[in-house]
Design a protein around this nucleic acid. Structure first.
Length: 774
DNA sequence: CAGTGAGCGAGCTTCCGCTTGACTT
């Protein structure tokens, strides 16, 4: 028996605040939402005011039972879910399910987990805000309608099991449109001219010409002019600049910075952050707030003054400018700022250190920098050279943390310049014109896509990472694997009066980890933007958010707004479903084959394919899948016809046939009933018998390493090497080697038998379904 | 692991936002 029951969203939070509240309070967690629409059914009663039909999912039933029991034995129930739209709805669902009265149940909120904030919240309970709950219901119902009406259109018109939604479809659109910009981009070359001058004392001054030179002839001419010029200082300009620190982390900026500085994927960042949160090292990691609690501000201030001195402190409160931010939590910060490092896994330490530095820096003074610009005039030309130098007079926050940058800028200013005054003469020791190329727009990375999504207000901190996984799982987008390629460029130098011309090489255009649309992504996007332009509009979410705000204010009725939307949206769905097109969506006719039959490419049930014959006559068409790296939009007739040359017989090796074929998992070589995959960088159409033999040999040697140990006593028991490390195999059954075993190769047959027995005896835990791709 | 894609037919797939498990032979 206890007096008070407090329900929060997160179990880690429950643990923390239970400590603050004392023994009269029991704190439990709802683990997020406890009710939702059915996972598979539409669950919206369109004819009755779009009433949502909620249910408690199976994996929440036990939790709900426990909450019900706790409610019975409590005198007062406090609903302390987050102070945002979803939190309000969670509180309301709790009332509905637990049989509490929304009008009288005490609803409390706190933005920070401190004793003061919690006591303050307890002393100011309010009722549930039903208008805000309605805004959440509108959001939920809208997303269900869009997702569950649009996806089936794609199943019918393009390919089964595809999906569309308010957030994911716009994310895909961003990536497809960026790719289109890149395709339309034509790189141009120009010359950048750098020079090193020497002052009277022989000190070097690095400078760059104030304008770009468009072509090689002009560059040579300029260098020639410089060879016959004298140089003098035209002007010296010194001005102070200040730099301010970046605000503390939100989910989005943490994902970006962990990607730039630690090379983490957004999922990885969130997994590591979750660990840190559960261990009590950091505050909540799914947040859009820049706010730091007053307690935290005080602790950070004393940390800075104590370690670095008063001069480095500048207390700042940041305010978010993000669209749709709901600020239910604090910014992401260490819970104990006096710990600059923690003992945990390497990844956890690195992420923690990043958060610690960013948090400290956000409360530090501006850096004070003196920027010097010197203009250097050649006697033979109108344009001048510019040298810039920086002197840091006071480092401020730079002492601790510098924010990363997405574009790989190759500017280098910040050199120290020798003292110069106008009229000084300088001597040119070297002038170099380097060929450069205008840059195509950069492809999105996971992190830069999150940044863009946040700017547009689509998605929430809890969904950035899952959305990026979804669009990859649906094969709309994939991460680039191509390393960069070599490019040649000219370097023309003037050195000691002679002009020399060299060709250098650089590696550019690496696509590793960049998001690139697939054929399916492109076709789905073209289809959706054409037939559902309003949903795919970048401002759709922002406009809906305004409606939700009005609903939350009590100025609009949620189901009327949904009805208005539905009246416009649903007819578009119907007409898209029923339209008849001459060609399948995304189909492209390449021409005719030698027999005069039509050759076309399109998206089939299993992905992109080529088809010979249009199926009009009696003859059955022929099909072949496109290879990885080939695209519906760029494949030529010739390349398409080559795909029908498989399986290809290469000849014989060790007396048996060697054939090349295209399978479900890509191109492969078949020999004596064994399959050998062909690596991505080899063209299956051009592979030779010799190359195939090499691959077969390589596969055999890998195979021989697979067996770690066999036993004379029992040939059916083997220790094998698998992707997760060594394991025991016996008659098609596999057994995990316990973690306590340090050297599996030393296991005896008896030990193996014991391990197998134990695992056979152990009740097989209800095998969780693993949604494995392919 | 290693084609499958029409001409039968049924049944399945799918959204966004809150939360954490239990799981890797």
């Amino acid at each position: 028996m206890f007096k008070n029951l407090v329900i929060v969203e997160s179990p880690a939070k429950a643990k923390t605040i239970e400590k603050f509240l004392g023994k009269d309070y029991k704190v439990m967690s709802s683990y997020g939402h406890i009710r939702d629409l059915n996972k598979k059914k539409f669950s919206i009663d369109i004819d009755h005011g779009f009433a949502p039909i909620y249910e408690i999912p199976d994996d929440k039933k036990q939790l709900v039972a426990e909450l019900k029991k706790a409610v019975k034995s409590a005198e007062i129930v406090w609903l302390a879910s987050d102070e945002d739209r979803e939190g309000e709805a969670i509180a309301w669902h709790l009332c509905e399910v637990l049989g509490l009265d929304p009008a009288t149940t005490r609803r409390i909120v706190f933005h920070e987990i401190t004793k003061n904030a919690i006591e303050e919240a307890i002393s100011h309970p309010r009722a549930i805000d039903l208008n805000r709950v309605d805004a959440q219901q509108a959001r939920r119902v809208l997303d269900r309608i869009v997702g569950f009406e649009l996806s089936p259109v794609l199943w019918k018109k393009i390919k089964p099991a595809l999906s569309a939604g308010r957030v994911q479809s716009v994310a895909v659109r961003l990536i497809v449109e960026r790719e289109n910009e890149i395709k339309a981009f034509r790189s141009e070359s120009y010359y950048r001219v750098n020079a090193t001058f020497l002052d009277k004392g022989g000190a070097p001054v690095k400078a760059e010409l104030s304008r770009r030179i468009s072509d090689k002839d002009s560059a040579v001419k300029l260098l020639d002019d410089c060879a016959h010029a004298s140089f003098s200082v035209k002007s010296v300009n010194v001005r102070p600049v200040t730099k301010s620190p970046a605000p503390p982390f939100t989910t989005s900026t943490l994902q970006q910075e962990a990607s730039r500085k630690l090379g983490f994927s957004v999922t990885q960042t969130m997994m590591v952050a979750q660990k840190l949160y559960e261990a009590g090292y950091i505050t909540y990691m799914r947040t859009d707030s820049l706010n730091l609690s007053s307690l935290a501000l005080g602790a950070i201030a004393s940390e800075i003054t104590g370690k670095l001195g008063e001069r480095y402190l500048k207390t700042r409160q940041y305010h978010t400018h993000s669209k749709g931010a709901q600020e239910a939590h604090e910014a992401i910060r260490p819970t104990d700022i006096s710990s600059s490092s923690i003992s945990a896994s390497i990844q956890e330490q690195r992420l923690y250190s990043l958060i610690w530095k960013r948090t400290i820096a956000s409360q530090m003074s501006d850096a004070e920098i003196e920027k010097t610009t010197v203009e250097i005039q050649p006697s033979t030309r109108d344009e001048h050279f510019t040298a810039t130098g920086e002197v840091i007079n006071f480092d401020g926050f730079l002492k601790v943390y510098i924010e990363g940058n997405d574009d790989d800028a190759d500017e280098t200013d910040g050199d120290l310049l020798p003292a110069m005054t106008a009229g000084d003469t300088l001597e040119a020791s070297a002038v170099t014109a380097t060929e450069r190329f205008t840059q195509q727009p950069p492809r999105y990375t996971e992190a830069s896509l999150v940044k863009k999504m946040e700017e547009l207000g689509i998605g929430r901190p809890s969904t950035y990472a899952p959305t990026i996984s979804t669009i990859q799982a649906r094969d709309y987008v994939e991460k680039g694997e191509k390393e960069g390629s070599e490019r040649k460029y000219n370097v023309i130098s003037l050195d000691g009066g002679n002009i020399t011309d060299k060709v250098k090489k650089e590696v550019v255009g690496s696509e590793k980890g960049k998001l690139i649309p697939t054929d399916i992504g492109v076709v789905v996007n073209d289809f959706l933007t054409r037939y559902f332009p309003s949903i795919l509009d970048y401002d759709f979410t922002a406009r809906m958010e305004e409606k939700f705000d009005d609903i939350a204010e009590g100025n609009l009725a949620w189901n009327k707004e949904i009805a208005m939307f539905y009246e416009l949206f649903h007819p578009d769905v119907d007409s898209a479903l029923n339209m008849r097109l001459e060609h399948k969506v995304g189909e492209r006719v390449l021409g005719v084959d030698p027999h005069g039959k039509q050759v076309s490419v399109k998206i089939g049930r299993y992905g992109p394919l080529v088809q010979i014959g249009d199926g009009d006559g009696d003859e059955k068409p022929q099909f072949a899948s496109l290879l990885k790296g080939q695209s519906v939009s760029t494949i030529t007739l010739e390349e398409a016809l080559k795909l029908f040359e498989f399986p290809r017989n290469l000849g014989t090796y060790e007396g048996s046939e060697v054939t090349v074929a295209i399978g479900k998992y890509g191109p492969y070589i078949k020999h004596e009933g064994k399959f050998v995959s062909i690596p991505k960088d080899m063209a299956p159409a051009a592979i030779t018998l010799e190359e195939a033999e090499e691959l077969i040999k390589a596969k055999r040697s890998a195979e021989s390493k697979r067996v770690v140990k066999t036993f004379d006593e029992d040939p059916e028991v083997q220790i094998l090497n698998g992707p997760y490390g060594p394991y025991i195999s016996c008659r098609k059954s596999n057994y995990k080697i316990p973690r306590t075993v340090t050297s599996p190769e030393a296991l005896t047959i008896d030990e193996c038998r014991k391990i197998m027995e134990e695992q056979n005896a152990a009740p097989k835990k209800s095998a969780r379904k693993y949604t494995k791709k392919k």
